[in-house]
């Protein structure tokens, strides 16, 4: 096994603690990964090794699961995760235009992070808010019935908030 040093900090301690309880459940791997992503915002390599060690599952299997599911990320994200829904209802109501303008506004492509580490741009398949299509989610906040202007406005609000801080 590759010798990976698992950092000793509060985040990893919290994960270790969670894993000790999860261990008692049957088939806990996916749940463990959810907890890890909650703690770190993504799933770092070291966390995969820690989960592997604690649950007794080969790290290759863990990596296979992480990369199979869209929900898990292996790259860190910025303070604000901007998710543009590309579901069917949003698509027929012009989600591609929203994505284009947001990408222009932030100056990044899907999957990228702005240099100031404020925004990461991402797309999603459907949030189940189709009644409000097209939809954009920034972290937990949902913005519906978007127009190109409204989307830009929302992002500028976030930028302004940061400048004031």
């Amino acid at each position: 096994m590759v010798n990976i040093k698992i950092p000793d900090n509060p985040q990893y301690q919290a994960l270790t603690l969670t894993l000790k309880t999860l261990k008692r459940k049957r088939g806990p791997t996916i749940e463990a990964l959810h907890r890890a992503q909650e703690i770190f915002g993504y799933i770092p390599e070291e966390a995969m090794y820690l989960i592997s060690k604690e649950l007794g599952v080969p790290v290759s299997t863990i990596y296979g699961i992480v990369t199979f599911y869209h929900f898990f990320r292996t790259e860190s994200i910025a303070k604000y995760l901007v998710n543009i829904c590309q579901g069917t209802a949003c698509h027929v109501k012009g989600a591609d235009k929203i994505l284009r303008i947001v990408s222009d506004e932030l100056g990044i492509k899907v999957g990228e992070t702005t240099p100031d580490n404020l925004f990461t741009l991402s797309t999603a398949r459907c949030f189940g808010c189709c009644g409000l299509a097209p939809v954009m989610i920034v972290n937990e906040d949902i913005y519906g019935n978007l127009t190109e202007e409204k989307a830009v406005e929302v992002l500028r609000e976030y930028k302004k908030k940061e400048e004031n801080n």
Partner: peptide
């Protein structure tokens, strides 16, 4: 964890078991 195929019942079972 976001996989459309998991709506299929045998895939769903694998996912409940914590697998791909």
């Amino acid at each position: 964890a976001g996989a459309f195929v998991c709506g299929e019942e045998t895939a769903l079972i694998a996912s409940v078991e914590g697998k791909r």
